[in-house]
Amino acid sequence: MEKKRIAELDIIRGFALFGILLVNMKSFSYPGLETMMLPGTFWTDHISIITEKLIGIFAQANFYTLFSFLFGLGTMILIKNARSRIESFLVMIVRRLLVLLAFGVFHAFFIWSGDILITYALLGFILLLFHKASPKVLSITALLLMMVPGILFFFLLQAVSLLEPEAGTSVLLYDEAAVETALAVYQSGTYSEIFQHRLGEWQLVNNAANAPFLFIAVFPMFLLGAALGKSDLLLQVKEKAALFKLWMMIALIVGLPLKIIPYWGDMEYSYLFLGEQIGGPAMAIFYFFAILLLCQQPFFKRILTPLGNVGRMSITNYLTQSVICTMIFYSYGLGLYGSLGPIWTVLLAAVIFTIQIFLSRLWLQTFQYGPVEWIWRQLTYWRKLPIKRNKPVYRKL
């Protein structure tokens, strides 16, 4: 039904899932959405501020963009494989996206408002319009969509800041009333009250006004991933190692300063925006090629391999993270919302992810796919598929 998987991509996918969990912990555990992800707004002690800044530099906007890159890459590889074997491959891809959309709707409305699957599914339909484009066209389009709006909006925010200095200070976005409401609802509200609040949070982010920003944050990385997936470069990692190292270093040189600058001074919103819009994707590219190259060394491949089990079950683990964390922090679970500072949520994320590594390995010793992935594949191909493991799943690069 499908060609063997590329182990390195699952390892990178697993790595991205840990980074996503680190970032999402802020919204799981306290009013991160209402405080606009700004260090020192809710938790004011020194350790918490440093922890939040480190997450802001090395994780925020770096990992959902990495996952977006992998989504575009995986989708294009799937299209390449399906086109050669399935006459109506576009119908199959559309079914795949519709199922992903259904997963996202259930996740966003019944588990946690910070869902990304709905955005991926909807933008995936737009990605289909580019399935015949060359890697060069995909790459140029991606860079234009990322850089031009990002730079223009940065200068617009700079102009606003010059005209009204206090308007450029992102701390003004803090909504104290919204924070108090979130604390009350998630700490002691009923499931019905939490559902209503969750719906409002989702609409706060996913609306017509924010749609262009969601588009330029995610879709360019879809295109960059698709460009790599459409080329044959992943089958020539050893031969192209020098080129990949060059791309990795350029991404680091661009991305790291853009991520550090906003947290160095007064966190002016224009620099925060530039750091997330351009710095985040650059760091995602750096992470991708750094891990890809490390995996070519047997020592590091052995160390990183356990991440691949998590990556093979990426949707299952992503949804499970939300279930576990909401049960820990919301009133229908342990009710710890607003009680644990950033350093503790980082440690908790490490514990949860370690458990996922162990359980994923245990599951995949018997089964080919995670449970959600199995359902997704059956509905995608519209036929019953075996879930028991009966053959090797990986191919070598």
Rank of each mutant, 00 (worst) to 15 (best):
L162K: 13
G229R: 08
A133G: 09
L144Q: 05
P212S: 10
L143F: 13
N207W: 02
K136P: 09
E180G: 04
K132R: 15
L224C: 14
V148R: 06
L123W: 03
V137Y: 07
A182N: 08
F130H: 09
F222A: 01
G200C: 05
L157P: 06
V179L: 02
I216G: 01
S192T: 00
V160S: 02
G189P: 13
G225K: 15
L123K: 09
N210H: 03
S192F: 02
V185M: 11
G189A: 10
F222L: 06
A226Y: 08
V205H: 09
Q196F: 09
Y191N: 10
A133H: 06
P220G: 11
A133I: 03
P149E: 03
E180M: 07
A178T: 01
F215G: 07
L138K: 04
Q187L: 06
P212G: 05
L138Q: 05
L129D: 00
P149S: 01
V218T: 15
A211T: 13
L143N: 04
M221Y: 06
E176L: 08
M146R: 00
L129K: 05
L224K: 03
A133R: 11
L228E: 13
F154E: 06
N206E: 07
V137M: 02
F222M: 03
M221C: 08
L156I: 10
E193T: 07
A142H: 03
L204M: 15
V205E: 13
I126E: 03
L183H: 05
L145M: 04
P149F: 01
N207P: 02
L127S: 10
A227E: 07
A142K: 04
A142M: 05
A177V: 09
A182L: 14
E180W: 00
V185W: 00
T190M: 07
V205K: 14
Q203K: 11
M146T: 01
G150D: 11
K132N: 14
K132Y: 12
Y174A: 02
V137P: 01
F130M: 06
L228N: 04
Y186M: 01
Y186C: 03
S188Y: 11
S188I: 13
M146P: 00
N206Q: 07
Q187K: 15
A226G: 05
L144D: 05
E180A: 12
N207T: 09
G168T: 12
E193N: 00
L223H: 13
L228F: 15
K136N: 14
N206F: 08
A177H: 04
Y186H: 11
F195K: 08
E176F: 02
K136C: 14
L214S: 09
A184I: 04
E193S: 03
L228Q: 08
L183E: 05
A209K: 14
P165K: 07
A184E: 03
V218H: 08
M147Q: 00
S134W: 12
A182H: 05
F219P: 06
K136L: 14
A142L: 12
L138S: 08
L138H: 01
G225R: 15
S161F: 11
S170Q: 12
A184R: 02
N206L: 04
F125P: 15
A217H: 14
V148C: 07
F130E: 08
T181F: 03
G168H: 12
M146Y: 02
L129Y: 11
A182I: 06
L123N: 02
